[in-house]
Each structure stands twice: as C-alpha cells, then as structure tokens.
Simulated scan of single mutants.
Amino acid sequence: MLTAAQITDMIDSGAMTWDGELRGDALLLRLGSPLQPLVSPGTPMVIDLADQRSIDALYRSPRPDWHSFDLKSGQLVLCPVAQPLRLGAMLAGAIAGLSHVARLGLATHVTSPWVLAGWHGHLTLELRNHGPATLRIYRGMPIGRLIVFPLSGPPGKSPSHPFYGKTDSPLGSRFADEFPSDEYLR
C-alpha cells in the first residue's frame, strides 16, 4: 500500500486527484450528499434482480439537503463520499471503515471494498447499522478511509462505469440495466 508521502507525491504529480484529507496512510472519507435510504427493514417485498423497476422499488427518494439522519438497527442507506476521487491507471484502492464507528455496529460497505484502477467520480458507501441502537450520522462526518495500492503490472481495460460515480448518477443498484436478463434467463 502507499504511504502518506507516496499518496501526496501521486497527487502532486497528477497520477491521482483527491482534495480531501489524509488520515495516516489513507484517504479520509467523509459523508457527502445526497443520502438515499432504502425501504425499512422488515418491509415485505421480493426484489426481482432481473427487473430494474423491481430493484428501483427498494429505494426511497434521495435527500440532497440532509444534515443528520437516524440510522436504525438493521437499516441500510447509500451515501456518496463528499470529495470526488480520480485514481490513475496504475492505482487501485480498498475502502475500509473507521474502527470508531465499526465498534458501534456501523459498516461502511456491504461487500466489495475495491476501487478499480482508473476510477473517477464520487465513491458510494453502503452504510448499514448492525448494532442494537439507532445511530445518528451527519453529513461531512468522517466515516471511513481508502487505502491506495500501486498495480504491479499493466492494468486490464478499465473504462469509466456507465452508471456510477458521476454527480447526477443514481446511487442505487443498476444491476438489471447492466446485466440484462436475456443474458442469463433462457
């Protein structure tokens, strides 16, 4: 992984862009806007992953002007990182939560922590409260970090993602749009 000095050198040389802070040898990730809640835990519904309208029904309206939000136990919300990130073609990253919030039961990503080489845009965090109590979160609060790694060889083709990372992109899943059901339902 890169050290803080190496990250600073990468930023200064233009190999990556980051206007946010560093915390140790990582980028400090703060909550941005909008915040997008999913339906309440326990809501009876079946989401058909082959149908984008079904997937879209899982999401409540984004809250662009949010200041604070009470994240109930078991609840999941989506929220972009406040600062955009651009990784050069020879850099990749891994999202990690801050142990302070993890010890309260707050997870900052649900599965894949990886940020591929060439990423450009706002990372979206999947915040889930695994703890027993409601947690109040705030826009701008530090929530995680991104560890940056150099690639050890030439990268594979890494085009910009057609659905995620742009300021006006939806935060929710675009699974059925990217992987049409005619590719796997036969």
Rank of each mutant, 00 (worst) to 15 (best):
Q75H: 15
C79M: 02
L85Q: 02
A50C: 04
L49C: 07
Q52H: 14
S61P: 01
S99K: 08
L49I: 15
D48N: 13
D65A: 09
P62F: 06
S61Y: 12
P80S: 08
A107Y: 05
S112L: 01
V77Y: 12
S54H: 07
L71C: 03
V110T: 14
D51S: 14
M90Q: 11
R103D: 03
H67S: 13
Q83L: 00
H67I: 08
S54N: 05
S99G: 05
V101Y: 15
L106Q: 09
V110E: 08
H67G: 09
W114H: 14
A89F: 09
L58E: 09
L78K: 03
A57H: 11
Q83C: 04
I95D: 01
A107K: 05
P80F: 10
G88C: 03
G93L: 02
I95L: 12
G97Q: 06
L49P: 08
L106V: 10
R60V: 13
G105E: 10
A82E: 15
Q52L: 04
A92C: 11
A50S: 15
R60Q: 15
Q75Y: 10
T111N: 06
S73A: 15
R53M: 05
W114M: 07
D56I: 10
R86D: 06
A89Y: 12
D51F: 02
A92G: 08
H109L: 00
A107H: 07
S73K: 13
Q83R: 12
A94E: 10
L87G: 10
A92R: 13
G93E: 07
R60C: 14
A57C: 13
L71G: 04
A89G: 11
P62V: 11
W114I: 14
L106M: 06
A50G: 15
S61W: 05
L106F: 11
L78Q: 03
